[in-house]
Design a protein around this nucleic acid. Sequence first.
DNA 1: TAGTGGTCTAGACCACACC
DNA 2: GTGTGGTCTAGACCACTAT
Lengths: 254, 254
Amino acid sequence: MAHDDTLKSSKHVVKYQELYKLIKEKIDTQAWSDGQVIPTERELAEVYNTSRTTVRKAIEHLRQQGYLHSEHGRGNFVLPERSRQSQRSLHSFTDDLLSRGGKPSQEILEIGFIPMNDMIRKSLELPVNERRVFCVKRLRYSNTTPMGIQTSYFPLKEKDAISKEELLSYGSLYKLLGEKCNVFPLEAYESISARLPSSTEARLLELSSEDVVLACTRITLGLNRKPMEYVEMVYPANRYAYRIKITKDSFGQK
Amino acid sequence: MAHDDTLKSSKHVVKYQELYKLIKEKIDTQAWSDGQVIPTERELAEVYNTSRTTVRKAIEHLRQQGYLHSEHGRGNFVLPERSRQSQRSLHSFTDDLLSRGGKPSQEILEIGFIPMNDMIRKSLELPVNERRVFCVKRLRYSNTTPMGIQTSYFPLKEKDAISKEELLSYGSLYKLLGEKCNVFPLEAYESISARLPSSTEARLLELSSEDVVLACTRITLGLNRKPMEYVEMVYPANRYAYRIKITKDSFGQK
DNA sequence: TAGTGGTCTAGACCACACC
DNA sequence: GTGTGGTCTAGACCACTAT
C-alpha cells in the first residue's frame, strides 16, 4: 500500500518496463541480494498496484538478462552477479572497450568510396549495378594500446559521404549513420576465426613474431532487416578475447 | 472452426508450445513463406480455440528464434531463413558438427582422475580440500578430418568415475552425466581467443606451419547454477570458425 | 474508419514445494 | 494443508497502419 501509482503509465512509458527497472535497481543496489527470494508475484502486483500478468512480464525479462531465476513452488531468486548480462549484445567498439575498463580512442586510416568487390556485394546483398561502396578503416586503441583494426563497408549514396572531420567530431559512426541516413542496427551475424597477421597488421597492432590475430567478419542488419554494414575486424589475440554467454534454447527446439 | 481442440493440453503438454511448433512447422514447410503476413492473432486464437494471450506467447518465442517479426498495426511477418536460429545455443560438439554437415566421431586420448590445479579449482568453484578432478581429453573428427581437441574437467565423486567403454557406448558425455549423476547443462560462459599450436596440437590436428588455433575455454553451469564442467577447446582456425548472432538488448538496458 | 499488434486487467485452475 | 510459480481465459483500451 506504500506505493499506489509509483508506476506511471503515461505516454510511451510502459508499466512492465518501469517495474523491470525498479526490480533491477533493487538487485543492482543489493537491496535484494544474491541467492535471496524476492517478494512473491502476487505481493509485487499488489504493492505496485498492477496485475500479476504485468509483474510476470517484468520478471520474464529479468530472467532473460540473468538477474533472476524462478523455482516452481518456491519463489523467484536473485542470481549472482556473474550470471548477469554478458550475453553478447549489439554495441559499438567504443562501448566494448569501456566495458573492459579501457579508455577508447581511434585513428582513421582510410575513409571514402572504393570500388565494389564481390565479397562485399554479396554480404551487403547489393545489385550488380552498384559500383562503389563507402569504406572506413580505423585503428582502435584502449588507452595507448592498439586493440583492433576495423574495416567497415556501408552501402551509402554518393551524396551521403561522410568526411573524416564529421566522424571525428561525432565519435560514434553508428550515431552519425542514425542521424544522417536514418539507419539503426537491429542484429548482427558474426564469424570468428584466427590467422597469422599480415606485415601491415603486425606493425599497426605492435605484434611480435609469436602473436596471432582473431579475424572476424560481421554483417549488421538494420531495423528493416536489410544489411546496413559489413565489417572485418582484426584483434591481437594476446590482448583481446571474445566473451559470450550461451544459453539453452527456450523450449520446443529439442 | 476447422480445428476445435487440435491443441491438446494434456499432462505436461502446454498449449503455447503446441501452437509454437505448429506455426514453426508452417514456416519450415513454407506453407507460410518469407515476407508474407501470417493470420492475425485474433484469427489464430479463434481457429485454434485458444486465447489471444496464448497465441501471443507462442509468437513471442518465434520472434526470439528469428522466425517472425511484428509490425505494429500491420501484422506478423515471416522472416527469411537466414535470420532463423543461429543464435549460439548450448549443444554438444557432436550436434555442432552435425549442423555443419559433417559426420562426427571421436577418439578418447585420456580419461580418469588427475590432480587438481588452481585454474580448474577456481573455474569449478571447488573447496581447497578437493584434491582430484575427473578429466576427459578427446580428439574430435568430422568425417576423417580432426576438428578439435576438447579437454573437459568434471567435479565427480570418486565412485562416479566414467570408464572409456561407458563413454564410447553412450557416445554423448552429457547424456551419460545426466543419467549417472543427474546433472544437466543450463548455460555456459565462453572465452574465445587464438594462439600458435603446441607441437602436440599441431600433430593431432594435422596442422602446417602457417596454421593457428582458436583456443576457447568454457564454464558450463548446471540446472542448480553451479559449475558442472570446465572445458578447454582447441580448434584448427583454418577449418573451424565460430558463428554467433548478436542482438540488441530487449529493452531498458539502454 | 476499420483492423492490426501492444499493453493491461482480474480473475481461474494446475503443478510443485514445504510443513 | 497452504503458498508458490506456471498456464490460461475473455475481455478491455491504446497506438499504429491503412484506406
